[in-house]
Design a protein around this nucleic acid. Structure first.
Lengths: 110, 110
DNA sequence: TGCGCATATGTCAGGACTGACATAGTTTGT
DNA sequence: ACAAACTATGTCAGTCCTGACATATGCGCA
């Protein structure tokens, strides 16, 4: 199971580089990364809109500031479970998540 | 961190009993469980529709039949990450996930 | 009935993730 | 310029999750 290393590279590629290096990703891998990125972006959007600091959100979650930072950076050590928990802690609904995912799909289609 | 035990009870409650025992769930917990259930149902629907056995899907995932069974049962030892990976392995797109979540939200609203 | 196939459930060693801490860089207000 | 608040990144021990295995149940069919 090398998903750890792969995802690390992928996440960096998306963040630092352009959309280019998606060529060596299987559709499943791309979809998974895409999902993670959509959620992490959604998380930061919600948090900043609500004027909540990473530290505050961390306390609410029973977590730490550093982990929240990693969530928003789509760090490979962060799971989608954790991202969802954070989003729900910020008042998101499954419907909101659905919307965020649908939008991400539109982006990918470009 | 007692989420393990809690989620176990919650999942069973939803599966075995009725919608009644949702009273002792915070909105965030309810949303999380709801998400998990929506995905597990979606997984089984996709798999059966494609006439794929749990064993076959397991091989495709590099996993085992027992784990696929637990995925579809929304077992507490299964993460949303794993559920998503399985769904994507069955050809689902983030858009499909979004649709599944949106529908689950509608159900909850009843 | 007996056999093969699909699914459900329990258990466990090993690897992945978590929260916490340390530290550095960045932004904002004075 | 300085401090305070906020955010980014690395590391690590303890815990959770994973795949694998064993086993049981159910189902169709010869």
């Amino acid at each position: 199971m090398d998903k750890h290393k792969r995802t690390k590279l992928e996440a960096r590629g998306w963040k630092i580089g352009t959309t280019a290096q998606f060529l060596d990703l299987t559709p499943e891998e791309a979809a998974f990364v895409e999902t993670k990125l959509a959620l992490s972006h959604s998380l930061r959007a919600r948090r900043t809109k609500q004027q909540v600091s990473q530290t505050t959100l961390a306390k609410r979650l029973g977590s730490s500031q550093s982990r929240v930072a990693k969530m928003e950076a789509a760090d490979p050590t962060v799971t989608i479970d954790l991202l969802l928990r954070a989003l729900y802690a910020l008042g998101a609904t499954p419907r909101d998540i659905a919307t965020a995912l649908r939008r991400s799909g539109d982006l990918m289609a470009v």
